[in-house]
Amino acid sequence: MTLKAAIIGYGKMGRIRHDAMMRHGGFEVVVACDTAIDPNATIPMTTDPLAVYDYNPDVIICSVPNMMIPDVVCEALARGKHVFSEKPPGRNSSDVRRMQNAESAHAGQVLKFGFNHRVHDAIEEAKKVIDVGTMGDLYFMRGVYGKAGGENYAQNWRNDPALSGGGILIDQGIHMLDLFQMFAGRFTSVQSFVQRKFWTEVPVEDNAFALMKNADGVVASVHSSATQWQHTFRLELYLRNGLISIDGILSASGSYGAEVLTMALNRPDRDGNPSPNPESQEIRFTEDKSWDKEVAEFYDAIAHGKPLRCGTSQQALDVMLLVEAIYAADPEWNAQLKADAQIKAI
């Protein structure tokens, strides 16, 4: 079964999705839409998002800026198309709820969001080991995810809250929060510090620190940073019988290094108490298969009716609510935003 696909938003992400669909083989990309026609494109292009429907696609790949996502997704669902959308799923939880409503109204259509970190090899391996129970109960998680701003940071739409919904936390940190929720479910208590230290010309945070706890008492701390001069992805999970950490994440930029999964089971002494620094087992992953796995899951959901495991709209809503809770938990940050808004109004 070949699915005809239209890509709305044919920038870096749209092209990554295009390549993944080609590798999969179950898709035919029939048209792409962007703000300008690429004369070198190998497929028909348009600048009108509604014009893609003239090609009668089965699926819409939505790779547009955050503020446009709800409109693109809801329009596609209303027209009976299956939708794969990039993260973040809009700018806030209202955007996600709007898309969820559209999804409910078109129950036969598949809606998947691209939280690809869940399907990185190291993450999947860690999840597997935890789910089997060998490591015992999860006690706490620590996550650091950061980069050194980015190209045209101040001018980038990602740092205009009206377009993106926030700064580094919603853009990149959302992946770490999504992973936290994958491992520990929803968090019921959140504390945070949200700051703007270096990129002061933009009205969004460049660092967010949060401490959260779920109903079972699992505690997680995250640091999402746009001033992480040394690009870093590090997720640590400490469990009753050992530890798991993931250092580095394979990305399009390659700047976070290879994914190194480290697992260690405690080495009990003769009394059964854990000795410090147990032997660890380190496994290195060097090939990013996440894009292919996401496309394959999307295809299987449409073609074979398999339920989605990753990137459901409920997961999207849960993580967006957590982002909002982190923003809301720092009164100083909210006061600063209010002051910014007043200055802007004057």
Binding site: V132, G133, T134, M135, R267
Partner: peptide, 16 residues
Amino acid sequence: FISLLNWISLTEARLE
């Protein structure tokens, strides 16, 4: 010895 035992345990988990 514990290194061997942990090798078996982690293998069991990874192979599910």
